[in-house]
Amino acid sequence: MSNSNTQRVKTIFRSKASKALDRMEDPRDTLDDSYDQQVKLLQQVRQAVAEVATAKKRIELQGQEMGTRYARLDAQASEALAQGREDLARAAIERRMMLEGQVGALQRQYASLEQQTAQLQERERRLTDQVAAFRIEKETIKATYTASEAQVRANEAVSGLSSSIQDVGSSLDRARDRVKQMQARAAATDELLASGALTDLTAAPDADIERQLAAVVADAEIDRRIRALRSGTTPSDASPARRGDEPDAWLSIGKGDASPR
């Protein structure tokens, strides 16, 4: 393989390898993957917000139940005193005091969950805005990349077409050179055959003598016609030319009396 062919193969290989890498490292796929990851993260944050809200709702319901019990114990303590049952009133008040501690702990948990909910909701809001902004930028970059890729392909196609045209031009130049060489060779062989330097194997025996005699006769005929023109005598075979206005005049050309004078 010649150096030019080897270089061409290397160039084609590098071009294909580069295109394969471009497909592997397509930024559009990378952007889509990043967007999908951000969407998943946003979904996780929203799920966390929902879970915290659910936990807060459970504590709220539990607090409402404890509040109802707290009010009932207060009513029971009052009724026990009214019935003269101080012992029952004391028991109700003790339970009410214990319930106050439990409610206080529940209130602290509820406040903590409210804070977490507010933080998660703020994080969700920011992340939603970021994902939306990233999506717009992603689509813009993808569209720009696709347009640039199309332009590159168009330029490569034009470049390839230019190379093809150059190759066609080179082929035409080579063909013209071969035609000229063949024409020159044909003319040279004709001259060699005419001079007798080359032997025509297809010609009849003594054809060279006949060819030379024919040349002598043709020269003599030309001399005869020149003498006739100089003397003002019209050659016999020129008479049809005077009848050129007749449709069949051409049939008489060369049919006149060609006997020498």
Rank of each mutant, 00 (worst) to 15 (best):
Q166M: 05
A197I: 00
K180I: 07
I136S: 06
T234D: 13
L127A: 13
T233H: 15
I209S: 10
E139F: 14
Q181T: 10
V168T: 06
S236M: 09
R178D: 15
R135N: 08
Y145Q: 14
P235C: 06
D190Q: 13
A186Y: 13
L229R: 12
A143W: 09
D245I: 14
L198D: 14
S164P: 05
R211Q: 09
V217C: 01
L192P: 05
R123W: 02
N155Y: 04
V152P: 01
A154Y: 08
S170N: 12
I253G: 01
S239G: 00
R126D: 08
Q151T: 11
R153K: 10
Q212S: 12
A150P: 01
D208K: 14
A203M: 06
R242L: 09
E149V: 01
Q121M: 05
D237S: 15
A157R: 04
G254E: 08
D223A: 07
D245H: 10
I209N: 06
V168R: 08
V152K: 13
A194D: 13
V158W: 14
R176F: 02
K142C: 04
L229N: 12
R174P: 11
Q119E: 15
A150M: 06
D206V: 03
I222F: 04
A204S: 05
A241I: 12
L120K: 05
A228V: 00
G232I: 03
R261T: 12
R135C: 03
S195Y: 05
R123D: 11
A133G: 13
D223R: 09
A184I: 02
W250I: 07
A220R: 15
A238K: 07
Q119K: 04
A194C: 05
I209T: 14
A187W: 07
Q116P: 02
E191G: 06
T117V: 04
Q115W: 00
L198P: 04
D245Y: 12
M182I: 00
K255D: 09
Q212I: 14
S171T: 09
A207R: 10
A147H: 06
V179H: 03
D208R: 11
M182K: 04
T144Y: 02
I209R: 11
D248M: 06
P247L: 10
G196D: 03
T128K: 02
R125F: 04
P247W: 08
A197M: 03
A175M: 15
S171V: 03
I226H: 01
R135L: 15
Y145A: 13
L161C: 06
P247E: 10
S236P: 03
Y145L: 08
